[in-house]
Design a protein around this nucleic acid. Structure first.
Lengths: 209, 209
DNA sequence: TTCGATTTATCACAGGTGTGATAAATCGAA
DNA sequence: TTCGATTTATCACACCTGTGATAAATCGAA
């Protein structure tokens, strides 16, 4: 009896519209009305799928985290059994996984730009769940740590390194690179961004130099 | 004949009030009225010193940059003639200068938090001068590059390093460390933040290990 | 005391915000 | 065709925003 609409797809459309608005005009201008307009919906319609602003923001942020972690999972699956890889293949996988977090193409540039707005706003904005932002930071560190740990176990990592410090160093480096590439693409191009990450990883694995 | 008020001090008071509001409630809530209230002024009075929002924001951002570069200048002056320093003193100076950019105490924590809000908002917010944000990024890179260059010239730096890449790596690392310390102080304490920076600099200077 | 530039204080306006409440339209199933 | 849950669409309200315009108060100098 009901009017037939796929609510999942609708919500996804709204989230996409939200991302576009945030990327183009910032989180400040991403009002419910602006998002509804961008999605081609009436605000009443939008509010049927998201009761309030807080719910929309939370759903959008969660969707973004799912999207990123989905890409990471896919990369890992594609790699197959990690134990069967050569050292060179492992290094390549590490780089690919971490590079997945950088704004190297337009899709990820939008993603990172929106993400930056979210996490900075989460510090103070009442409608944005600070717990989700923290969760993302924790997750990123867990990934970085696992990658470093695996390299340590396979003895491709310099043995004099402290895992805690290196985890934080690499995590913060990635954050800083992402931030600068998004904010000042003329100062730090996506290519240069990747070069820095590659050099950093090289420095971690190459013995004594 | 005029009523006697120090306009310079007034403007500084307003800027301080703005920083407090931004730190506490975010740039989003830092409206002219909120800033005026925080400064104990009537909004009409505030508008006598700052014609627009744009002017206030620009002045505040400029004041912040002046404050930081002033601290850096003072550090350099205190160090005296750089050529007369021992290698250990030079390394210490490099660390101190770069650490000046990190949110290691409450003053700088507020500063960095506000700064982060500013630069991210500058990407889209029409009342915030994106040129100033870019200028700050350029300035930070210039400082980092000079420090690295000096270390290279005095042969305390590993000779196999690319100055461009290392400048960007260190600059982005500092940005990432600052961001994470401000956003997630329970994940990255000021002490740990400084440890990471120290380790990074050690890795740049220590030959072959 | 009178003057007058500086400084403070108000009012008003157009526009935008989230949200509660409610009506209307839709369209497949019974 | 009729029903009715789903979906869409409006209206209204209180609140906040930047800003233009204008009046009022201040207080040292002449």
């Amino acid at each position: 009896m009901p009017k037939q609409v796929d609510p999942v797809a609708r919500r996804a459309d709204v989230v996409d519209a939200l991302f576009r608005v945030v990327f183009r005009e910032g989180l400040q201008r991403a009002s419910l009305r602006a998002v509804a307009d961008e999605a081609g919906l009436n605000i009443g319609s939008l509010r049927h799928y998201f009761a309030n602003q807080q719910e929309l923001m939370g759903f959008a942020m969660r969707a973004m985290l799912d999207r990123v972690s989905g890409r990471l999972m896919r990369r890992i699956d594609e790699a197959g059994d990690v134990g069967a890889l050569t050292l060179e293949q492992r290094r390549r996988l590490s780089l690919d996984l971490l590079a997945e977090l950088l704004p190297l193409d337009e899709t990820r540039r939008v993603e990172v730009a929106v993400f930056v707005d979210f996490v900075t706003a989460a510090r103070t904005h009442p409608a944005i769940d600070a717990g989700l932002a923290r969760e993302a930071a924790v997750g990123a560190r867990a990934l970085v740590r696992r990658i470093l740990r695996r390299a340590m176990d396979s003895e491709t990592l310099r043995p004099d390194l402290d895992l805690d410090v290196e985890t934080e160093r690499l995590s913060s480096l990635i954050d800083g690179l992402s931030l600068n590439t998004v904010l000042y693409p003329d100062l730090l191009s996506p290519e240069a961004c990747l070069d820095v990450l590659r050099d950093h990883l090289d420095g971690l694995t190459r013995q004594g130099s």
